[in-house]
């Protein structure tokens, strides 16, 4: 199995690792978004989904562990590559210039690290509920959460909503480069198809942004609100 380690340590192998973990994380992002969007079907739909997850702990925890592993690989590989890249140019240009690289591509490590920070906060906030205790604490009869209420209450606070929107914007930027880049790394390049893939990748990143942002946006604009008489 030595060849596996050798492969993933090589520069191109590392790229594959980034691309593969990246695309898996993209699936998670899409799944998560689909879940989020249930909110527009009403509180019952969203809560039913949350409770279903809660009632299948094996599934939930396996997913969480796999996700964590993917995440750790993605982040540590990124940091390793960044350090190698910095070492590859020990003296930088006095007068640097960029011709083609996009803001998104140049800031992958920064958007990535900021996202990491936000995700930690996000977990503390919604999953562990230690940030905004009044809004995110247990509320149901069996101790389960009313996720709908939690979301609406939390995003009712413009500061939390703004932070969330900003993080999603970072995600958009990250994916803007990341999705199109996936095809190049995997070697799926073709004069006819590459421009289409690149376009679809960018379109998808925008859709993800819109999908995620639609929730706090709807709360802030009053499209989503707590049922009358609720807590």
């Amino acid at each position: 199995m030595g060849w596996v380690a050798t492969f993933f340590r090589s520069s191109i192998g590392s790229k594959f690792l980034m691309a593969l973990t990246g695309i898996l994380l993209l699936f998670f992002v899409l799944g998560h978004m689909t879940g989020n969007l249930l909110i527009f079907q009403g509180a019952e739909a969203l809560n039913a989904y949350a409770h279903w997850l809660h009632d299948h702990p094996k599934f939930l925890w396996t997913s969480r562990i796999v996700l964590l592993a993917i995440f750790v690989i993605h982040v540590t590989t990124a940091i390793r590559l960044k350090l190698e890249n910095m070492a590859a140019r020990p003296v930088s240009y006095v007068k640097g210039r960029t011709l083609k690289a996009t803001l998104a591509s140049r800031s992958m490590v920064f958007t990535g690290l900021l996202l990491l920070a936000y995700i930690l906060f996000h977990l503390l906030h919604f999953t562990l509920g230690v940030v905004q205790k009044d809004a995110t604490g247990p509320s149901g009869p069996g101790g389960e959460k009313d996720v709908y209420a939690m979301v609406v209450t939390s995003f009712g606070n413009p500061v939390y909503a703004a932070g969330y929107i900003l993080a999603i914007a970072l995600l958009w930027l990250h994916l803007w480069h990341g999705i199109a880049s996936f095809f190049q790394t995997m070697g799926w390049s073709h004069p006819r198809w590459t421009p289409l893939f690149t376009f679809l990748g960018k379109a998808l990143s925008l859709l993800i942004f819109l999908g995620y942002v639609s929730v706090p946006f709807s709360v802030l604009t009053g499209l989503l609100k707590l049922p009358a008489g609720g807590n």
Binding site: S11, I12, K15, L81, N85, A88, L99, S105, H177
Partner: peptide, 17 residues
């Protein structure tokens, strides 16, 4: 690719400069 890595070139991040 192995030789390239040994020489200490950086990694490609698909920026196309």
């Amino acid at each position: 690719v192995e030789a390239m890595d040994q020489e200490g070139f950086g990694n490609c991040t698909n920026q196309y400069e």
